[in-house]
Design a protein around this nucleic acid. Structure first.
Length: 398
RNA sequence: GCGUCGGUGGUAGAGUGGUCAAUUACAACAGACUGUAAAUCUGUCGCCUUCGGGCUACGAAGGUUCAAAUCCUUCCCGACGCACCA
């Protein structure tokens, strides 16, 4: 396959959603040369689901792949046991091998939604890191000085606060850098929080007499609540979320983050995003653009048809306040109190929660268009309920 | 090994004998409004309750006390300092 060297496309790739490219001139020249480059991306199997934030470097990798370059995916099964200190102020617990195996189960399948797996190289870094002897490790460790290592921002912070930094953590960038040697990467992609690690790749490649990789770091994405998107915060939109859910979650993203989401999570070109921004400043309703965003994102991971359905579903249930076609159905016995039915099926977690919901007028009986105000309401016949504004439950009486 | 400090609800982080089911912030949930599951405003936010209250919770186990998240003892876990490293 011929490598695409269209300058316009290359410029878009090197700037859209990109935080930093190093060395930019060199990388551009390389890309223009028509040579097939090896593009490295490391992934830590630390969570079972890929969310939109983690998808960003993957999508960038895909863009390179589409140019005709070689995607080299490194599963950090070994490094995950070490724990990456990049984005944490505290040290991260080591993951167990079992946990990693569990996480890896359908990881590949998920990655396949973004990357053309067939054309990509897929390697596990345990396959070389596991074999390093103490001797070789020492040679590797020779590449960095204590001073250089301690320059790293979050090590610096922790040093100042007299907080612990384990030596183990210092090894993380060394290992990630060694990965670059092992796969002979020309370019490495990473989130901006990976800056130190990917730069370490250059140092270490040089240490081993190889030419240094160029690096490209992408911007970080905030989650639905505006904080950094992170599984432990629960503010994530994963790429395997159901279409309706995914659509809704995107709609709950704060308006201010709109263009960032467009930039980092869709294929919409930058010029068009600028245009959207202008229209919003001119007074157009951001909601309409957000719906477009939600549509685009669902389309990427579920296809056009599902995206349309999700959109229709959203408009009907939330704008027009209609009852959705599909909803969860649970069974109950005649005469049983409604709380027990809901509690049994784990729709609710406690009777206190139920009391609160009833008091707050949150339980709608959609068949009669009334609110249920009796805490001891008994189920007599089939019911269609709306709890709050987004939960719909159908109760079938046996 | 010695010493010092610390372990609190989904998270951060107050509280150092009763007024503590525990300030506050964030997250979450509900209502109003709306332009959306945005923003804003209001309310809720351990479990059970006949709504009086009851029960379980502040690392674990004991103890002191009328009364403990708060004091004492032991233990577990963590951090830091000292020692050690020429």
């Amino acid at each position: 396959m011929k490598v695409i060297t269209d300058e316009k496309i290359i410029d878009e790739i090197l700037s859209k959603g990109v935080e930093d490219v190093f060395v930019k001139e060199h990388l551009k020249k390389q890309l223009m040369s028509g040579k097939v480059l090896r593009i490295k991306l490391g992934i830590d199997p630390t969570g079972p689901k890929i969310h939109l934030g983690r998808a960003i470097p993957l999508r960038k990798l895909r863009a390179f792949q589409d140019l005709g370059h070689k995607a080299v995916l490194i599963v950090g099964d070994f490094t995950a046991t070490i724990g990456d200190p990049s984005d944490k102020l505290e040290k991260r617990p080591m993951l167990t091998t079992n946990k990693i195996k569990e996480n890896m189960k359908d990881y590949k399948k998920q990655i396949g939604k973004i990357i053309d797996i067939k054309k990509a190289e897929f390697v596990y870094n345990s396959s070389w890191l596991k074999k390093l002897s103490m001797m070789e490790t020492s040679i590797l460790a020779e590449s960095f000085s204590l001073q250089q290592m301690s320059k790293r921002r979050n090590f610096q912070d922790r040093l100042e606060k007299d907080e612990e930094i384990s030596l183990r953590e210092l090894f993380y960038p060394l290992m990630q850098g060694y990965d670059s040697v092992a796969v002979k990467s020309d370019v490495e992609i990473g989130g901006f929080d990976q800056l130190f690690n990917v730069k370490a790749g250059r140092t270490i490649q040089k240490h081993y007499g190889m030419s240094e990789q160029d690096i490209l770091t992408v911007q970080m994405l905030e989650g639905t609540d505006g904080r950094k998107m992170s599984t432990s915060w629960g503010n994530v939109i994963t790429i395997v979320d159901e279409p309706n859910d995914m659509y809704g979650k995107v709609m709950s993203v704060k308006d201010e983050l709109l263009s960032k989401y467009f930039l980092l999570c869709t294929d919409i070109p930058m010029s068009q995003i600028k245009d959207f921004e202008k229209k919003i400043t001119d007074g157009m309703n951001p909601k309409d653009f957000k719906m477009g965003l939600a549509y685009e994102i669902v389309k990427i991971y579920h296809g056009e048809k599902k995206a349309k359905e999700a959109e229709t579903n959203f408009v009907n249930t939330f704008s027009k306040k209609e009852i959705p076609d599909e909803m969860e159905e649970i069974k109950g016995n005649a005469g049983e109190s409604l709380v027990d039915v809901l509690l049994n099926k784990k729709v609710l977690t406690s009777k206190g929660e139920w009391r609160r919901l009833v008091e707050q007028n949150a339980i709608h009986d959609l068949e009669n268009d009334t609110r249920i105000t009796d805490v001891n309401y008994k189920v007599e016949k089939d019911l269609t309920l709306k709890i709050g504004k987004k939960r719909f439950i159908k109760i079938i009486v046996k």
